[in-house]
Design a protein around this nucleic acid. Structure first.
Length: 433
DNA sequence: TCTGGGGTCCTAGGACCC
DNA sequence: TCTGGGGTCCTAGGACCC
């Protein structure tokens, strides 16, 4: 009798196929076999494509205005990004995955690593199909699953499964060696998780062409010529698990709010109003995660494309003590914008970043900085939470005095083809025949 | 006319100290 | 006056991810 090898650690990388496009199809059975594309903010570029759209040769990141002809010709159904819908579907998928695995690491809105101990190859494969079918039946989303002893290999296995859907049926197991070598040999280094364009170019120059080449590299020379992350990648390709929990930590490090404008902005006052709005949004997020921030940055930039005069700059201000008060950050933001604003440029994007978080309203006493009045802080915090409550359902119910033209025409982000909020708004529920 | 948004981590280099 | 080295801490910017 032969015993199956048990692997002490097994990762299943579950990844939703064409996630945004699949979410849009979920409530539109009429689109089941039709090409669908989801566009970014301002309906700028393609961010998700259904299989049919991919087959038509529409590239990821393609500017919408450049593919107008194809959209018409092939009747590609386009949607603006409906993040509330995607987040809602994502939550359902993740909840279901968690029922299979207590060690679930949610890596992004559409993928998660499931970690198991002591599984044989066959057990892992059976489990993967069970999970895949459950997600399809209960949520209606197709997922692909890569199985391996490390996260990097599981990502590669998942990619391989997707590239070879007809033979893999969306699941590929690289726990054992012939299969591991297969995915290593069949993937160029650029396909490896953690190897971006810059590293790809350098590695290729140095003669590393496939993932297999990199797996055979000498760790010491890699450390010398590249960095510690590439060394980790080499280890991971060789079944040495060394990438920690990738789930988004509870202790988020920064909050960013930024938008590109449909039209260009020139005036300081117009930019300031946008900065005020993004500051308000960022602060609201900050309070939602129960953090206090000590630092705020404001950035502005002209378009990368077309503009004659390009300019981009960022400025940062450190507060004396952490705050959650929108008004505090707004006055800081104005100072920062004054600092970097230059007239005569056609700005197309501004953003606000809060960082340097604390978990509580700690105040480091300092000889030269006057300690804030605790009672006043209590009152201010209450006021801010009230503000959030009032604005929760209807944005801009209550605004801070300095905000004058909240819906300035120039900064409206056009979302022309937004799908209804099927799962989150009562008045937009799908109709059932 | 129209080219996304929101994150994390690493590293080089400067400031500062002994 | 000039000459050093070694260490830590912080920050800006780059690279990467989805």
């Amino acid at each position: 009798m032969e015993f199956e090898t048990e692997f002490s650690k097994v990762y299943l990388l579950c990844d939703c196929n064409n996630f945004f496009a699949s979410c849009e199809k979920l409530f539109r059975p009429d689109l089941k076999h039709r090409p669908v594309a989801v566009l970014s903010n301002n309906d700028g570029v393609v961010v998700s494509r259904s299989y049919e759209t991919k087959a038509l040769g529409i590239a990821m990141g393609a500017p919408a205005f450049k593919i107008q002809d194809e959209i018409k010709k092939f009747q590609i159904q386009t949607f603006s990004s409906n993040f509330n819908l995607y987040l809602n579907i994502s939550n359902r998928v993740m909840a279901l995955l968690e029922s299979f695995c207590k060690d679930l690491q949610i890596y992004s809105v559409d993928e998660a690593f499931l970690e198991f101990d002591n599984l044989t190859e066959q057990q892992a494969i059976d489990l993967a199909f069970k999970i895949k079918n459950a997600v399809l039946q209960q949520v209606g989303i197709h997922i692909g699953i890569g199985i391996a002893q490390t996260k990097t290999l599981a990502k590669l296995a998942n990619h391989f499964a997707k590239q070879n859907r007809s033979t893999t049926h969306g699941v590929f197991c690289a726990l054992k060696d012939p299969m591991r070598q297969k995915i290593l040999l069949n993937n160029p280094i650029g396909e490896i998780w953690g190897i971006g364009k810059a590293l790809e170019d350098k590695l290729t120059q140095d003669g590393f062409i496939t993932a297999f080449d990199l797996s055979k590299a000498d760790e010491k020379s890699i450390k010398k010529a590249y960095n510690i992350n590439v060394v980790k990648t080499v280890k991971e390709l060789n079944n040495k698990d060394c990438i920690d929990n990738v789930a988004q930590a509870d202790n988020q490090a920064q909050i960013m709010w930024s938008r590109s404008f449909k039209d260009r902005l020139y005036d300081f006052e117009d930019l300031l109003q946008a900065v005020y709005e993004y500051t308000q949004e960022s602060c609201s997020k900050l309070r939602a995660i129960n953090c206090w921030a000590k630092q705020i940055s404001v950035f502005i930039r002209t378009s990368y494309f077309g503009e004659q005069h390009k300019y981009s700059n960022i400025a940062t201000l450190k507060l004396d003590h952490p705050s959650i008060d929108t008004r505090v950050f707004m006055s800081a933001a104005k100072i920062l914008l004054l600092h970097i604003y230059k007239s005569g440029y056609a700005y197309n994007k501004v953003g606000v970043i809060l960082s340097d978080f604390e978990q509580e309203r700690a105040f480091q006493s300092d000889l030269f900085v006057k300690a804030p009045d605790q009672k006043k802080l209590d009152k201010d915090e209450k006021l801010m939470h009230t503000l959030d409550k009032l604005n929760k359902n209807e944005k801009h119910t209550l605004i801070i005095g300095a905000q004058t033209k909240i819906k300035a025409k120039e900064q409206e982000c056009a979302l022309k083809k937004l799908s209804p909020s099927y799962t989150s708004a009562w008045d937009e529920l799908p109709e059932v025949n």
